[in-house]
C-alpha cells in the first residue's frame, strides 16, 4: 500500500515532503514503547504511535521504518519533521486513536507480518 492510500484510509495529514511516495508498505506495528518497536523485525513496515518525540524518528531510522503515523490528533514539531525529512521518513498525523487507526489499516490489507 502506498503512503497516499494510507493517508486516505485513516484521514491523515502527510507532514513531510521529500519521502519516497512510491514505497510499498506491507506490515505495521502499533506501539508507544520504542523498545517494543525494536523487538519487531519486519521490513517495509509502518509504525503507528501515540508517542511524539525525536526518539520515535530515531527508532524508525534504526528499524528501517519508512512511515510513522502519529495518532489521536498529535502533530509533530517542525524539528521532528526536518529530522524525518533528512532521513527520508514520512510522517503522517491522524485524529483517529491508535486502535481505530490500526483497525482501519488492517481491514484494508496491512498485516502485522510482512516480508
Amino acid at each position: 500500500m502506498k503512503i497516499h492510500e494510507i493517508a486516505q484510509i485513516i484521514k491523515a495529514e502527510i507532514c513531510t515532503r521529500n519521502h519516497d511516495p512510491n514505497i510499498e508498505i506491507y506490515s505495521a506495528c502499533s506501539a508507544d514503547l520504542m523498545s517494543d518497536v525494536m523487538a519487531f523485525s519486519k521490513s517495509n513496515a509502518l509504525l503507528l504511535t501515540g508517542l511524539i518525540n525525536p526518539q520515535v524518528i530515531r527508532t524508525a531510522e534504526m528499524m528501517d521504518i519508512k512511515v510513522v503515523v502519529f495518532v489521536r490528533g498529535k502533530k509533530p514539531l517542525d524539528s521532528m519533521i526536518s529530522m524525518a525529512e533528512e532521513k527520508g521518513i514520512a510522517l503522517l498525523a491522524t485524529d483517529y486513536p491508535l486502535f481505530v487507526a490500526s483497525g482501519k489499516l488492517y481491514q484494508n490489507g496491512i498485516r502485522g507480518r510482512g516480508e
Binding site: 508507544d32 514503547l33 520504542m34 523498545s35 517494543d36 525494536m38 523487538a39 504511535t49 508517542l51 518525540n53 526518539q55 520515535v56 527508532t59
Partner: peptide
C-alpha cells in the same frame, strides 16, 4: 514517557 525504560533494552541488545 519517552518510550523507553520498559526493561527490554539489554535483551534487545543480546538478541
Amino acid at each position: 514517557e519517552m518510550g523507553f525504560g520498559a526493561g527490554m533494552g539489554l535483551s534487545n541488545i543480546k538478541k
